[in-house]
Structures are given as C-alpha cells and as structure tokens.
Nucleic acid binder design. Structure first.
Lengths: 313, 313
DNA sequence: GTTCATTTGTTCTCATGGCGCACAAATCCT
DNA sequence: AGGATTTGTGCGCCATGAGAACAAATGAAC
C-alpha cells in the first residue's frame, strides 16, 4: 500500500487501539475528548478502507474479530513507534548537545567570545561550537548559522536579543600623551597624530559628539588601518591617538598600555549602536542554541556591556 | 504524549519518511501526488509540534539533523507497523477462514444445508460453520449471525439473495392411496384423513390454489403436528395425506415412500414464498461469508430449487 | 559573472471532509 | 417494564489544509 493511501488510516488505527483499551467507543471518546459518534465513524471508515470488520459490536458489547486482533497488534506497534519518535524528539530538543554555529565580526569574536570558550564548553560537555568570522551580515540559513552577532538593525523575521552597545572612542599610550599633551577638546585633535580607519573616503573626518555637542574634525596621522587590532597596537606603540570600538580597548585599558582620550566624547561613524544576538524563532528552540544565547547574554551582563536591559528586537 | 495529541502527527511522520527517502520536498510531493507547498507545510507543522528541527534545508539541499535521524528511525518503524496492519487486514479479508454463523429454520437446515456440510468444509479446510436453528426471524447482530435464511420479505438494510421458492404441497403413501383412492379435486379431501399443522386456529382450513382457481376445504385427520418431519413420517406410515413444504418431501419422493397428491395445486398459508440468504452489505464482505453464500447459492441452483434466476432483494 | 531550471516557502482563496449535536434504535441491568 | 447508556445516522457547519500563484534562493552550466 502506497504511503498516501495509508496516511489517512494512521490516526484511525491509533483510535482503534484506544477503543480496544478503553473497551467501548464511548469510553474511548471520553479519553480522547471527542464524541462517540466521531469514534463510531472513525471505526467505520477504517473497516471500510481495510475491507474487514475489526470489531463486532452492539450496544454494550464490543469484541475484536480475529482479523481485528491482528490489526490491533500491529497498530499498537505503530503507536509505540510514533510515541518513541516524539519522545526522542523531546529528548533532543532538551539536551544541550550537538553543534552550534556562531557568526560574528572578528573583533567581537576575538575580544569577547573567544576568551569565553573554555567556560562555555566546560559547562556543556556535549556542545560543539563553530565560530565563523563574518564581518558581512550573514544569513542564518547560509552554512547553517544558528546565531549571528549583528551590529545595527536586526533583520526581520528573527529573534534579536541585545548583546552590547558599541561606541567608538579615542585612546592613546600614556607615553604619547606625556610627550604631546592630552587634548581637552576634539578641536585640538588637528594638532595630534590620529590613527583612523582609512576604509573609505571620509574616514579621516571624525565626528565627535557629547551630550548636545557635535564637533567635526579633519584629522591626520602617519598610520591608518581598518583592522582595529592593528590600530590598537600602533596606539600602544605611541604612534598617536586611535579611534577604536570601546570593547576592543578593554584589555589594554586594564593593562595600562592605553588610556582613554576625551572620554566624555564618542565618534559617530559606521560602528556604533546595539549589537544583537540574532537567531530563528519559528524554526526551533533547540536547547543547545538557547544555552549558547543565554550564556553569551550572561557574559555581557557580567562584564557590564550594558545591553541586557534593552528590549528585544 | 496522549493519543489525541499524537494523532495529527502520524500522517506527517509518515510524510517525513517519504521526504527523506525521496531526497526533497518536491520529489516526495510527486511520489504522493500532492504539492511541494503541502509537503513544506507538513514538515513545518511537524517540527513546530515536536519543538525540534528535523531537516536543515535550503533550496537544493536537504539534510537530517541528529534529532531528525532519530525521529525518522522511529517513524519508519511506525510506517512498517501500519503497513503490516493493512497487509494483515488484506490477508484476513481474502482468506476463507474463521467462523461463519448461519441461522436458518430447522427444516431447511436439516433437509438442504446439513447434508452439504461435508462438501463445504472439505472445500474450505479453515472454515468453521456454526448452524443455528432459528424459526423466528433472527437479527444478524444478535449473537453475531453472519447469514440468515429468511422466508418472506427480507429486512431492509441487508443484502438478500434469493435461495429457493417454498411451496406447501400434499403428499401420501402409495399404500394409503391404494386403499382410499386418489383425490382428483381439493373438495374431495373432506373424505380423507388429512395431516395438518395444528399450530394455530384455522390450520385445519386448507386453501388450495391452482392457476386462477381457489378452493377452501375444512379437513380432518387423526394426526396433526407443526413438526414437518413428524408429519412426513406419519404420511409415510399411511396415516393420511400430509401438507408439507415441498423441499422437505424431496427425499421421500425420490425413495418412493411418498407420492404427490393433487400436484398441480398448492396450499396457501404461512409457509410459502421466496427464501432469501440475508447478510450485511455495509459491514463487510469477508471472504468466508462470501464463500458460504456463494456455495449455498450454488447448491440451490444445482439441486434445482429454482430461485437463482430471481432478482436480489 | 550571468542565466536558467528547479528548489523551498508564503499568501490567498476555497472546497471539503469530518465533527458536534440531536436523535433513533438497541441493549443490558435493575 | 423502565432507565441508563450504548452504537449509529442525518444534518448543518466550519476549521483546516491544500492548490495555485508567486517570491526568493540556489546550484549547475556556460
């Protein structure tokens, strides 16, 4: 029998098992929350489809035929297998195991996520994490990405949890500032060596804002790079004042190799705003994806990136 | 998971197996005679219900998740068991085996059906036949009667196949007629010893008919019984002219112990008309019931009871 | 790199099959 | 004999799932 001929019989076979176990149509209907007439018709349809009387019945009496006994035996197996399928699905859905693919910009991966891997993998011994550097907006279907860290507006159709707020700020080595003085206002930056992005035209025009104040400064420097790690190292070497996403400067600030310059100000450009953890909602909520998302959100809160109180996207 | 939560998932689990075996939604849809969008939605519903992604897919790529592999394993077992149930049903429906319950009036059982049992049971070695003497109209549900032999109008809602035409005729022993003369007309019966029914008032009033002629005669006899076999034996003993259903006199006629009296006439009463084989149509057509019905109809034709050419009820 | 064939997935419309309700007929128990 | 409860049927309704149309995506071929 081809599957599509079989398909409509499957629920009725299951109802047959219920009927036999309950002892009557009425009792089976009560168990299922349906009605005796519905059960009666289900049995009649099944018998018609199989070309065999399964149950001999009158009011108050119900008895399986010999053919019915054989069919019920197989129908019980069918039901047991279906229950096993659902139980297996439930177990899989609730076990933190398997592979999670996380795509994030390199800087965030390196500075924030990468250092947390030992703790995450120790917490979930059956978890496999695949990190993908992705500075372009990744599509979650592509290469089976489960979670993406996305700066800026989250895409429609996904769940987006706020992870951190990113600001671009200025930093310099203490030695450089000792030699060249510490600027008190952005306008003074014109007299300093400024390490900027040089990624596209206009990157040497810094737009600094504080409260209601906004200053545009054309800066110069002997070094520029769109690689924030290289700019940070150059600043640590005393080559000038570097613009950096604030989270990338954290370790150097803690080590004392950089200090914040004009800390009340931030630069506006293409790298500010909220970073979101983005994942599918209507596909599934596998335990492993949820576990990784929750872990990372905990890290952000614990380390004070200050986005956890923002509403979800 | 309770059965009624499981019921709507069963066809979708079966479709999942088809999808995996076909390799894509589109191929599975073609196999099933449905559409890719229907299959897509079936898989989406199943994943939503199970809370687990079963298939990772994009256009042109389809891959089971690890949870999906486990679910599919069980779903295949489910499908195999369902197919076994249907195959078992098909085998039962086509094997002449098991019990058939036949209810019939005693005379017909004894004279016509009982003598055929050896041939029937030899033809179908796995068949069990239960004969029930039933002079009252049996209901087929009562005690699980499969086939009833019914004289007169068949009940509504059943299939009725004409089995034989029953007439009540007159018979006497040759020795009785030699001593008392052979009546040439029903009116002469008043001068003969007549063995009648004595089952209810009026049974001693015989109504004889021939073509358009109808004669009513009040008869007397030294013996009466509602047991046709006893009346037949009394007639064979020379005690008089007996009224008998014609099929009950066949053997005595063949043996020469009885001869027909006024053979062109028949008596009207409660025992004439067509006898029908009656059985359920809308319940099932199990092979064993069909086999018994066909066998008996064959017997009727072979032995010339003359009803096979009548239309079904 | 572009085009094409074919995939998956979504929206909209609608047909239909199955269900609930009401009730008849039957049956077993008291 | 009556009552409680069963199975089964007719009728009306409606929830739901499918088909059609189409968008977006993708891998192969050129």
């Amino acid at each position: 029998m081809r599957t599509n001929e079989l398909l409509p019989l499957l629920p009725d076979l299951a109802v047959l098992v219920d009927v036999v176990e309950a002892g009557s149509f009425s009792a089976a209907a009560r168990l299922q929350g349906s009605t005796p007439s519905a059960v009666s018709r289900q049995m009649a349809r099944l018998e018609a489809a199989l070309g065999l009387t399964l149950l001999e019945r009158s009011t108050r009496r119900l008895r399986l035929t010999s053919g019915g006994q054989e069919v019920v035996r197989h129908a019980r197996s069918m039901l047991d297998a279906a229950r096993a399928a659902c139980d297996g699905a439930a177990r899989h859905a609730s076990t933190v195991a398997g592979r999670v693919r996380l795509a994030a910009p390199k800087a965030a991966l390196r500075q924030i996520i990468h250092p947390q891997l030992p703790a995450l993998l120790q917490t979930y011994p059956q978890l496999t994490l695949e990190l993908q550097v992705s500075d372009q907006p990744a599509d979650l279907i592509a290469d089976g990405v489960d979670i993406a860290l996305r700066l800026g507006d989250p895409p429609a159709g996904y769940v987006a949890r706020p992870f951190m707020v990113v600001r671009t700020k200025l930093y310099a080595a203490p030695a450089y500032l000792a030699e060249h003085g510490t600027p008190q206002h952005p306008s003074e930056l014109v007299r300093h060596s400024c390490l900027h992005l040089a990624e596209q035209a206009g990157d040497d025009e810094w737009c600094a804002v504080r409260d209601n104040e906004r200053v545009v400064v054309n800066v110069r420097g002997r070094y520029a790079s769109n690689h924030s790690e290289m700019r940070r190292e150059a600043a640590e070497w005393g080559m000038g004042i570097a613009s950096l996403p604030d989270f990338t400067a954290r370790q150097a600030l803690a080590a004392g190799t950089l200090v914040a310059v004009l800390p009340a100000w931030q630069l506006l450009g293409r790298y500010q705003g909220t970073s979101w953890l983005v994942y599918h909602a209507d596909r599934y909520r596998a335990a492993r994806v949820r576990a990784v998302v929750d872990f990372l959100l905990g890290v952000a809160t614990q380390q004070g990136y200050g986005a956890a109180s923002l509403p979800a996207g």
